[in-house]
Design a binder for these strands. Sequence first.
DNA 1: ATTGAAAGGGTGTCGAT
DNA 2: ATCGACACCCTTTCAAT
Lengths: 151, 151
Amino acid sequence: MLTPRDLAILDILQRDSDTPLADIGAKVHLSPSACSRRIAHLRENGYIRRNVAMIDRARVGLPTTVFVTVSARTHSAGWTEQFRHAVAQIPEIVEVVRLTGSIDYLLRVVLPSVDDYDRVYKALVARIEMNTVNASIVMETVKAAETLPLG
Amino acid sequence: MLTPRDLAILDILQRDSDTPLADIGAKVHLSPSACSRRIAHLRENGYIRRNVAMIDRARVGLPTTVFVTVSARTHSAGWTEQFRHAVAQIPEIVEVVRLTGSIDYLLRVVLPSVDDYDRVYKALVARIEMNTVNASIVMETVKAAETLPLG
DNA sequence: ATTGAAAGGGTGTCGAT
DNA sequence: ATCGACACCCTTTCAAT
């Protein structure tokens, strides 16, 4: 369903979607037109969702990242729905996942500075009751692959 | 240095970098050529780093995400360097940040299945001694903005 | 310095061989 | 898969503000 050649193309495009078809073709030993068809196929079948611009967060005034762990007030469908609604309304919360273990949710918050976290915290507690909320500031990005381990 | 119009353009491009200049121009009330120039400036000045393809992880056989918290064995320059080197060598570890608080590092691991985590764990402990290692499996993605809160 | 209109060039796409 | 023609879109130039 997905040949090694397709994976190689995906690997190129996840690093730079502006790569000319001629360059892609040279790397995977295919003609530019054939690459075009493969890529169209990958798009139609949902392997490639869309192309996006990678913006330098620091450059646009959002250098700070805070991870927040949350444990639920109650384990009920109502609380879950309310929590989902709360985080959806706060744009600084850019990612929320539900986890196994004693911590229920992990939130990634992107901000101009650590001082701004207080705003997000207050916005959150105003919308939903939580058992525990624990914020950790990102001091350093050790690895940012931003790329999937393909192949 | 960065007008509201520039932010609007960035907001469009971080969602879909294939948006034609004519469409962008219509939204920000600018001609396509003017948009082209603005974007070129944004690239040159480092606001836009590059364009990348968003790949559907599940579709390419990597549906599982595991977050791992690590506390250091010792707080020394040597350990830190060795840890940095260790995570750099393991492709499944796609993101590593150093945090404030009792947990030193947060790792994001992308895998075909939860069973594959054991491989990553063993690869990690073979390379670096750690005080505590704690893995939490992502059960559900509640919010995946994948977009910065601009404007 | 920044804009819009029009010309020019590059690149992707589609057909035929 | 290669070749060639077409079409589209981005880019550049130029006059104007």
